[in-house]
């Protein structure tokens, strides 16, 4: 028998929310341990880097366009473009290249 779809959605949403707030329930003050501090310092950058590559190359119809968007985005961000500009530059790069290729 199929579980009620709304119960399913509720359980999915609630479980996800628990993952978000568990650390808030445990931590009362910043961690002092050097390893833990360093570990937490690297987590965000490592996580986002893993999510970006190679996914960006697979997201576009032409892998080359995705790769070009990655390079264009890195260059733009390196030279100080803000979040929205970098995202736009990546989109435009793909649009142009896929039009040409």
């Amino acid at each position: 028998m199929k579980t009620n779809i709304y119960l399913y959605i509720f359980v999915m949403a609630f479980t996800t929310w628990c993952m978000r707030v568990i650390p808030s329930l445990i931590m009362k003050k910043p961690i002092e341990n050097r390893f833990a501090k360093s570990f937490l310092y690297y987590v965000p950058y490592v996580t986002l880097a893993i999510m970006t590559f190679p996914a960006i190359v697979q997201a576009t119809d032409q892998p080359l366009a995705g790769a070009a968007a990655l390079v264009a985005g890195i260059l733009a961000a390196w030279f100080g473009a803000n979040l929205f500009s970098v995202a736009s530059i990546c989109c435009i790069t793909v649009l142009l290249l896929e039009f040409l290729l």
């Binding site: 965000p44 950058y45 880097a49 970006t52 997201a59 366009a65 961000a77 970098v86 990546c90 790069t93």
Partner: peptide, 23 residues
């Protein structure tokens, strides 16, 4: 399909913008 393909990298652009300046 072309628009979907181009929009799909917006999210990655935001990731890049978050990690490159600290790097």
């Amino acid at each position: 399909a072309r628009i979907v393909s181009a929009l799909s990298v917006a999210l990655f652009g935001m990731f890049i913008a978050s990690i490159i300046p600290p790097a």
